[in-house]
């Protein structure tokens, strides 16, 4: 009996972990959102990293967690924002918990890997898939997002 319960507990825990991960990737799906904003970070300036996170935070304050869909797309030098060891990782985690999506550019990641000699470890909340600029074009032209580049 005990073994049976333990097995189900493990399965349940695994399910929670999996759905948690999925939720993180697709956290931007908010059916009641009035606004849809895509924030672009492609600048090497360290201050821009802080700024883009500030803007996301301010948008949530203004419209509420469920009132705005936000996705931060990082490419070029801006991809450093989504590195696993980034000094802002605490803030990124907080925004992720509030439904902000983080998308990294896979082309940039490949380019950086060539220069570094290894693939940089990325923040687990970020989805690194496809070119960043294509993602922005898709969100703006097909899904009604407004592009903001702080």
């Amino acid at each position: 009996m005990f073994t049976h319960i333990a097995k189900w507990s493990v399965l349940l825990a695994a399910l929670v972990l999996i759905t948690g991960g999925v939720q993180s990737v697709f956290a931007a799906d908010k059916p009641f959102a009035e606004k849809k904003i895509v924030l672009q970070i492609s600048d090497p300036d360290p201050f821009k990293q802080t700024l883009v996170l500030n803007v996301a935070n301010n948008l949530i304050k203004e419209y509420g967690t469920d009132g705005v869909e936000i996705e931060i797309v990082a490419f070029g030098p801006g991809l450093r924002l989504l590195f696993a060891d980034n000094a802002n990782k605490g803030r990124i985690q907080g925004l992720d918990a509030n439904g902000v999506g983080f998308r990294g550019c896979s082309n940039t990641q490949k380019s950086m890997a060539k220069k570094l000699g290894y693939v940089p470890e990325m923040n687990p909340v970020a989805l690194v898939e496809g070119p960043g600029v294509v993602r922005i074009v898709k969100l703006v032209t097909e899904e009604g997002y407004t592009l903001v580049k702080p």
Binding site: P44, D45, P46, Q49, T50, R80, L81, F83, D85, N86, A87, N88
Partner: peptide, 10 residues
């Protein structure tokens, strides 16, 4: 320097 945020030359 703060990880992955510092610039080339401040």
């Amino acid at each position: 320097e703060p990880a992955s945020t510092a610039g080339r030359a401040k």
